[in-house]
Amino acid sequence: MDLADLPSRRTEAWKWSDLRAAMSNQESVLIGTGAMPAEGPIAALAEMFGDGYGASALVVEAPGETFESGITEGDAGQYGSVIVKAGATATMIERIGVSGSRLRPFLPSYARIEIEPGAALHRIIVQANSAPGDERDAAIVLNEVVVKLGEGASFRQFVVAEGSRLTRIETSVTADEGAVVEMNAVYLVAANRHVDLTSRVAHAAPGVHTRQLVRGVARKGGRGVFQGKFLVERAGQKTDAEMAHNALLLEEGAEVFAKPELEIYADDVACAHGNTAGQIDENAVFYLRQRGIPDTEARAMITRAFLLESLPDWMDEVVRAEVEARIDAWLGGAS
């Protein structure tokens, strides 16, 4: 596999995130030999460059387990698999580049996750940067999970991402009967930052309940990408699925690209999707200013509330406070 095997903007699934172009500047990365595996480029790169969780899968058997994986200095990314056994519950927190230390410029991470019948996994990703001009701007962050969700199992995910030279966080879920999927996210892209949130949920059996609410903000020179697909297979009767992506373009020159997709082969389903990208409501800003709140604060208040609507209520208070603090810092211009 060499550079030419990586997806570029000519590849449909990567058209807004040209990995080949981004990687061509990464002199420190050597592309290995061998063909591109079926799992795709992130899996291939993670296997080559990532640290494994160990030879065997990480297995969660008890209820209420929490495990954290941070990708910071010294880490090269991760590759492995996770199994949440029937009846077990777990929370998985991934912090990418949050520690304040320098990141390696290239961070591929790939995991297969199996959530057995009746089990539950909560997954939180916090991907963040510090000041503009930081070396981490140059990082390429690739993160993909492929989730197999058993009967009556649940997978709830929340992502907050500030992006980098190129950040792509990809989530694919195949859900069995009566499973519950929730995939909310917030992205905040400043100048020269790129966040790509790509997801796919296959409703492969009856009665799957899926909710996705993604809220994003972009400043001048920042780029947000949302690609969300709900596939309802013939067997997916009584699927109840809602997808929403809403973005605020905070400045002229901000970019947001969105591709929401529904592909439905069953006839008795309730599926909805909504997608908006626009500017902050100036009438609302004026309303706040008329009450005495200065312009900058009024905008931050409206934007903050817009973003916080995506924060799930299951999130632990401490993590929630961390996420809110990141949003506040970003809105305050710290990022």
């Binding site: 409501d281 609302a284 309303y287 706040l288 008329q290 005495g292 709140i293 409206i302 509330a305």
Partner: peptide, 24 residues
């Protein structure tokens, strides 16, 4: 004066159509 400065000086408008501010 900016709108917020006028407000701080004690000027208040009861809007004909008050705005909805989600999440606040």
């Amino acid at each position: 004066l900016e709108p917020e400065v006028r407000a701080a000086k004690g000027l208040f408008l009861s809007f004909q159509y008050p705005l909805e501010i989600a999440g606040v």
